[in-house]
Amino acid sequence: MIEILSQTALATVQDLGRLGALGFGVGTSGAMDDLALAAGNLLLGNDEADAAVEIQVFPFELRFQVACAFALTGADCAATLDGQPVMPWWSYQANEGQVLRLGPPVAGPGRISRAYLCTAGGIDVPAVLGSRSTQLRGALGGYEGRSLRQHDVVRVGQPGDRVRRVGFGLVPPAQVDPLLQDGVAGMRVMPAAEYDHYDEASRAALWEQSWKITPQSDRYGYRLSGPKLSMTTPLELRSHGIVPGVIQVPHSGQPIVQMRDAQPSGGYPKIGTVIKADLWRLGQAPIGSMIRFIRCDWDDALAAEQRNRTYLDNVRRLTALYRSRPGLA
């Protein structure tokens, strides 16, 4: 069990998302940085799709009520365990009663915004419609369908499954496979249905200008500010299914990228879609930071997914090897 000590946590239990319930009007939810969650799980020897705690407001404090192996992935939050430094992307064994504290993400050019607490055996909440991710609208999944609060006690793994070989770590994907465009964090985008309805200047601006992530950005969507995107002729669309990553453009001409908690349908025009393989990059981009969209096609998008897959395959293979033979290397 872990007890949440922070007051306004806004942390949620997430896994890789709820796939297959779109037909019930249920969006995918899931970790904003799916690579960090999957890698953290693999580091502990978990299934890569196990649930973890996504932490996005700092400082964040929790107490291990039982001894439990854990790993923090995602943002480097200069964490401490009973005051002792805890490295990001590294596995540890916590003793009963120890307090884990995460500070704000460490400043610097590589600053990212969300951290994942993975625990041996995964966060033990019931799967709802095939996933442990928190779906806030409709209050289902995760911990009672809501974000965590002070004094919540969250179950971790099974007794006997909480001790793992720990004390090693991973190179984060941002360092293995960085993506910058003119020095600005990049995300690859495929044009979407209404792309050709935007005027030439708007289409050019999409690729050539930097976009700022406004404070009105959260797990539902990232509202960007930049040049106004205008259509040659206004379009009224019928409600249709959408997915995380879709870049909608409301009347203001300022794009909104749908994120993990986005509703599964919408009606605004879509100029593009941030590809699945790069959604974690956007999910980690801090409010106030600048991003660039990099045009890509179907083949590029599949190749990017394959690179993510290769990263996780390498993590799985090398961590399994190290666990069996820590002398490796």
Partner: peptide, 20 residues
């Protein structure tokens, strides 16, 4: 929407959208 043929577009590689 006055096309006579359905329109198919991509939502990344996650999904495609078929519009009658």
């Amino acid at each position: 929407m006055t096309q006579t043929e359905p329109q198919v577009s991509f939502l990344g590689t996650t999904a495609l959208l078929f519009e009658a």
